Amino acid sequence: MRISILGARLLLLASALTCSEAMATGLPKPGDFYLIARDKFGDFSGSHKIFRRQSDGLYPVTYCSRNYWVRAHTIAWTQVEVENKRSVRVEFNFGKGWRPICENPAREVTLADIGLTEEARDILRQSEADIGAVNRFSAISNSFQKTNSGNKQNGSFHLQ
């Protein structure tokens, strides 16, 4: 009986450690850069990680003369936070807190700067994979709808 209780405790401890390790992978680490939104009292409201290296799905941007790579959702989120009267700035995690790096990054980079014309809130409703993607079937369909002159075709090309 004693062995089974001890075994259960060890199993519980091992699973708790595994869960905490898995959760810790998403936590900010010293050396990370984030866009951080704060309310009018300076309290944390939300954040998005920004990167110093290129990776799939990231766009190059410059905040206060420093180059970063960000997701389209990050730019859209920044714009919405500013619309909601929160201050957003680039902050650096130096291990014992956060150091401000750049004030008002939303003034420096917009969705239009990365070639997106949709509203910020619409971008946030989309999955990251769908942003800016052209629907292949719509493009094919549109190519059959118009001739080179831009007018709609009448019937089959065999009838022309």
Results as ranks from 00 to 15, higher is better:
residue 78 T to Q: 12
residue 62 T to A: 15
residue 79 Q to P: 06
residue 83 E to V: 13
residue 83 E to F: 06
residue 56 D to Y: 10
residue 115 G to I: 01
residue 63 Y to F: 15
residue 83 E to A: 14
residue 65 S to I: 01
residue 59 Y to N: 09
residue 74 T to H: 06
residue 74 T to L: 03
residue 96 K to V: 05
residue 57 G to K: 06
residue 92 F to K: 01
residue 73 H to D: 05
residue 92 F to L: 07
residue 57 G to D: 05
residue 97 G to F: 01
residue 82 V to I: 10
residue 87 S to M: 11
residue 72 A to H: 03
residue 86 R to V: 09
residue 60 P to E: 06
residue 97 G to N: 04
residue 91 E to T: 13
residue 84 N to S: 13
residue 59 Y to P: 10
residue 71 R to C: 04
residue 63 Y to D: 08
residue 100 P to L: 06
residue 79 Q to T: 14
residue 97 G to S: 02
residue 79 Q to L: 14
residue 95 G to Y: 02
residue 108 E to T: 02
residue 105 P to Y: 01
residue 94 F to C: 09
residue 65 S to D: 12
residue 106 A to W: 03
residue 98 W to K: 04
residue 86 R to L: 14
residue 102 C to S: 06
residue 57 G to P: 03
residue 89 R to M: 14
residue 106 A to G: 10
residue 104 N to E: 11
residue 59 Y to W: 09
residue 70 V to C: 07
residue 114 I to L: 01
residue 105 P to L: 00
residue 71 R to L: 05
residue 104 N to P: 07
residue 90 V to I: 05
residue 85 K to G: 06
residue 73 H to M: 06
residue 70 V to I: 05
residue 100 P to G: 05
residue 94 F to N: 12
residue 92 F to Q: 05
residue 110 T to H: 12
residue 107 R to H: 12
residue 105 P to T: 02
residue 66 R to W: 09
residue 104 N to K: 13
residue 85 K to E: 14
residue 112 A to M: 00
residue 77 W to T: 01
residue 99 R to K: 11
residue 94 F to K: 11
residue 111 L to Y: 04
residue 78 T to E: 11
residue 112 A to C: 06
residue 59 Y to E: 05
residue 79 Q to G: 10
residue 83 E to M: 12
residue 60 P to D: 08
residue 90 V to E: 08
residue 72 A to Y: 01
residue 107 R to Y: 13
residue 75 I to Y: 03
residue 95 G to D: 01
residue 81 E to Q: 15
residue 88 V to N: 00
residue 103 E to F: 13
residue 98 W to G: 02
residue 83 E to K: 12
residue 111 L to S: 01
residue 56 D to G: 13
residue 84 N to I: 04
residue 79 Q to M: 14
residue 71 R to V: 04
residue 83 E to Y: 14
residue 76 A to N: 02
residue 83 E to N: 11
residue 84 N to P: 14
residue 63 Y to Q: 14
residue 111 L to P: 00
residue 56 D to C: 08
residue 82 V to W: 04
residue 93 N to P: 05
residue 76 A to R: 03
residue 68 Y to K: 02
residue 74 T to G: 13
residue 72 A to G: 07
residue 114 I to P: 03
residue 90 V to Q: 12
residue 82 V to S: 04
residue 64 C to V: 03
residue 76 A to P: 12
residue 57 G to W: 06
residue 80 V to C: 07
residue 72 A to F: 05
residue 77 W to Q: 09
residue 93 N to I: 00
residue 64 C to S: 06
residue 65 S to Q: 14
residue 96 K to N: 15
residue 111 L to N: 01
residue 66 R to A: 13
residue 107 R to G: 09
residue 82 V to Q: 13
residue 58 L to C: 11
residue 111 L to W: 02
residue 115 G to E: 05
residue 63 Y to S: 09
residue 95 G to P: 07
residue 86 R to N: 15
residue 62 T to Q: 15
residue 114 I to R: 00
residue 61 V to P: 05
residue 85 K to V: 03
residue 106 A to P: 07
residue 68 Y to V: 02
residue 80 V to H: 04
residue 100 P to Q: 04
residue 88 V to H: 01
residue 109 V to N: 00
residue 94 F to A: 13
residue 113 D to Q: 11
residue 94 F to W: 10
residue 110 T to W: 00
residue 81 E to Y: 10
residue 63 Y to T: 00
residue 86 R to D: 06
residue 112 A to L: 04
residue 106 A to R: 00
residue 69 W to H: 15
residue 70 V to F: 07
residue 80 V to W: 13
residue 84 N to C: 12
residue 60 P to C: 08
